[in-house]
């Protein structure tokens, strides 16, 4: 039998009771943990051996139900799936245990996930299809068509990505990565008839895909490898392909790259801002432009560098473009 390896760890655990506490506080516990234990084992030990009032959610213990997501030293994890020794490797022997979102805490590690579910509901997370009341045969989806979902349906709604997204943290209207992964899951379903409607919802300013800062944290943090940012890119593509892209600063910003590359190979930074913002909108960037110009950071149009073999680039843009705006 393997010998049990142990390490001593100090846990700083977030405590808060919405009904009685004005401010949250932290309790500290020092425990010996073994290489076999996961974060949930420690929460259980604290609750059973030290303080029965510690509250947290858990159910399946198998990384399936998604309710046990919390943050360990800032990283969102499923408590039941995350080995303590892996956390010690990254963060050392002092670990901070917090709810996914401290500002949404109700009791200790339990949060109010209302915003998560509201956003999930808003993207119409169901297949809309006209199906005969008494279908004569099954409505089969071929394996090939099922692959198009790119495993977006593996999402267990744990909220790890949602409460790690910096864009959402600042702009509460933003739908967030999990809702977008779900929007893609149904928009990419061959049986679905509401795809364009859904694309219009995620195309709206402030709430939609355009507010993503592309930090890649959602892809990093997801315990189910759903890779939400990949789905966000797909939604962008579908918005253009379906012809529902609006003519605004966000869409022009994406399209502007193709124009610039066609002309210079390289990006014409100044022209990209002008094209995206329009001739009037661009004025608000004047203070930065002047400061940059003074410091030799602005290339004048007549000095714009070009890629060598530009004819190749132009040819490829002609032959390889797949969408129009």
């Amino acid at each position: 039998m393997d010998t049990l390896q142990t390490q001593q760890v100090t846990f700083k655990v977030f405590r808060f009771n919405e009904e009685t506490d004005y401010l949250p506080y932290y309790n500290t516990y020092t425990l010996d943990v073994t290489h076999e234990e996961v974060v949930l084992d420690i929460l259980n030990r604290i609750k059973w051996d030290h303080d029965g009032s510690l509250s947290y959610r858990r159910s399946c213990r198998h990384g399936i139900c998604g309710v046990c997501a919390i943050k360990v030293s800032g990283k969102a994890v499923l408590a039941c799936k995350t080995r303590l020794f892996d956390m010690i490797d990254v963060f050392g022997n002092e670990l901070v245990i917090e709810p996914l979102s401290t500002k949404r805490a109700i009791k200790d590690l339990i949060i109010d996930k209302k915003d998560f579910w509201d956003k999930h509901a808003a993207i119409k997370p169901y297949v809309e299809a006209d199906i005969a009341e008494h279908p004569a045969q099954e409505n089969l989806v071929s394996p090939h068509d099922a692959e198009k979902l790119l495993e977006a349906d593996y999402c267990i709604q744990c909220g790890a990505c949602h409460y790690s997204c910096p864009s959402l943290e600042i702009n509460e209207q933003y739908f967030g990565p999990a809702a977008f992964a779900a929007a893609y899951r149904f928009a990419a379903d061959v049986r679905d008839n509401a795809s364009v409607e859904r694309l219009n919802i995620v195309n709206e300013e402030a709430q939609g895909v355009w507010d993503c800062v592309k930090c890649m944290e959602c892809a990093q943090v997801c315990p189910k490898e759903v890779n939400p940012i990949e789905k966000i890119t797909k939604l962008h593509n579908m918005i253009f392909e379906a012809g529902v892209a609006k003519n605004n600063v966000a869409t022009r910003h994406a399209v502007g790259f193709a124009h610039s590359i066609d002309k210079h190979g390289l990006l014409d930074e100044g022209e990209l801002v002008r094209y995206s913002e329009g001739n009037i909108g661009v004025m608000k960037h004047l203070p930065e432009a002047i400061a940059m110009w003074k410091n030799g950071k602005i290339v004048m149009p007549w000095n714009m560098p070009k890629s060598k073999n530009l004819d190749e680039v132009k040819k490829l843009i002609k032959s390889s473009s797949t969408v129009k705006f």
Binding site: T233, N237, F240, T251, A254, F257, A258, L316, S320, S321
Partner: peptide, 9 residues
């Protein structure tokens, strides 16, 4: 950003 518009390109 270009891949948001045209991934293949």
């Amino acid at each position: 950003h270009l891949q948001d518009y045209d991934d293949f390109l």
